[in-house]
């Protein structure tokens, strides 16, 4: 609103202190306010930045921990799978060995029966029949080596066992000798 005084138009706010000192003061005041606002905003910005960096670091640390835990879990899972695989393979091996042993035991009976029959006819006495793996060993005593050879031939004919006379030791003044036959079973051509 304007009012006239003495024919002169005057605004409602005249202050002779406005220029130049008041203006300078006002500029200084604004400068200080701007500086204060700048410092405040800068401080807030720095604080926010610090918070953000801190939060980022914490998140990274958490993520790292999770990654480590995940790796440990995967590693443990792989170890367990490997153990299970080993157990499975071992069980298969055991089953195979047991089956093999059962087969050998089943084979040992007719072989022993045959040996017993043949041995009686040839005058051979048996001490021990043992096997280790596929390797069979028969120890006993015979009146002479030819009786052992005949028995070996009979084993080949009747059981398909190709045995080998490993040792023959004549007992002096006893008219007999100790022998040791060896063969492998199962072998090609052997009867079941």
């Amino acid at each position: 609103m304007r009012h006239g005084i003495g024919g002169v138009t005057m605004n409602p706010a005249i202050n002779l202190l406005r220029y130049p000192d008041g203006e300078r003061r006002e500029l200084r005041r604004w400068a200080w306010m701007a500086l204060g606002a700048g410092v405040l905003l800068g401080t807030l910005g720095m604080q926010l930045l610090t918070w953000q960096v801190q939060a980022r670091l914490e998140l990274d640390a958490l993520e790292h921990q999770r990654e480590q835990a995940r790796r440990v879990a995967i590693s443990e899972q792989a170890r367990l799978a490997k153990v299970q695989q080993e157990l499975h393979e071992r069980r298969l091996r055991w089953q195979e060995q047991v089956s093999h042993m059962l087969g050998q035991q089943a084979q040992a009976v007719p072989v022993w029966q045959l040996l017993a029959q043949s041995g009686v006819q040839q005058g051979v006495s048996f001490g021990r029949l043992q096997w280790s793996g596929d390797r069979w060993t028969l120890q006993g005593q015979a009146p002479d080596m030819s009786a052992v050879v005949r028995m070996r031939d009979e084993l080949l004919v009747r059981q398909g066992l190709r045995s080998e006379l490993k040792t023959w030791a004549t007992v002096v003044n006893a008219g007999s000798g100790a022998f040791q036959l060896e063969w492998t079973w199962p072998s090609a051509g052997a009867k079941p």
Partner: peptide, 11 residues
Amino acid sequence: YSQVCFDAQEG
């Protein structure tokens, strides 16, 4: 110049 106090308004 540097001493005077004044106010001015644009019409």
